[in-house]
């Protein structure tokens, strides 16, 4: 979906971010220091850069200073306000404090991409096509009637595909914080989606956790 540059000197963290982003379909390139990041930015264009603040040789702020147009999410280990403010006042799109949650990272990446890329594509899985702009779903080329909640639930699953989402989290993301129903609402909607779209295999129940839309296997 999007082309993302990951600048993080800690190899395990870099790898973690890359894996998470690739799960939901982004293309990633990992670099481990500021100088290489500058070269990479000069070579090709990226839709988004995830940039660690503390980098060897050239720190994240310096890298960003030289690429202000680049949509950027800062990654910082410091919870100190000054670092966050500095990043944001410099014009960064967002920041994430380590340690972060997977869904938080994905949500912020998604939010920035939605802001910076007005044109959003659709997505296709097992003969089902979803179009984010017109908010419509087709199965085998035939448009399927969906309630708004059903559409939003499916969109959430598509955006966070390959990642298990708990029922609570789905309630929160689709129905909102103030929704007073219980998690059975989610189960009911999932059942309906599976039936309507013929995605019984793809929308998997993850034991003791929730649901996951799987794009492979």
């Amino acid at each position: 979906m999007a082309n993302i540059l990951i600048v993080e000197d800690e190899e395990p963290v870099n790898e973690l971010i890359r894996r998470n982003l690739e799960l939901v379909g982004h293309q990633c390139r990992s670099v481990y220091d500021g100088k290489t990041a500058l070269t990479a930015l000069a070579e090709c264009s990226f839709d988004l850069m995830v940039l660690d603040v503390m980098l060897p040789e050239l720190d994240g702020f310096e890298v960003f200073k030289q690429n202000r147009e680049q949509p950027t999410i800062f990654l910082t280990a410091r919870s100190g306000l000054s670092d966050r403010l500095r990043g944001l006042t410099m014009g960064a799109d967002d920041y994430i404090v380590k340690p972060f949650e997977m869904l938080e990272l994905l949500a912020r990446v998604e939010a920035v991409l939605r802001r910076t890329q007005p044109k959003r594509n659709g997505f296709e899985i097992a003969r089902v096509r979803i179009d984010f702009d017109s908010r419509r779903i087709w199965r085998d080329g035939v448009e399927t009637e969906c309630s708004p909640k059903e559409y939003e639930l499916f969109e959430t699953l598509v955006i966070n595909r390959n990642i298990a989402l708990s029922r609570e989290r789905l309630l929160e993301l689709v129905w909102g914080y103030d929704f007073e129903g219980d998690t059975r609402t989610v189960d009911v909607h999932i059942q309906r989606l599976r039936k309507k779209l013929g995605l019984e295999k793809q929308i998997r129940t993850v034991y003791k956790l929730g649901y996951r839309l799987e794009t492979e296997q």
Partner: peptide, 19 residues
């Protein structure tokens, strides 16, 4: 402290949630 925590937490979550 945050770096190993990020890694441990992140991979554990990854193992739990991702296929």
């Amino acid at each position: 402290l945050r770096t190993p925590l990020t890694t441990i937490y992140g991979y554990a979550e990854y193992l739990q949630k991702a296929a």
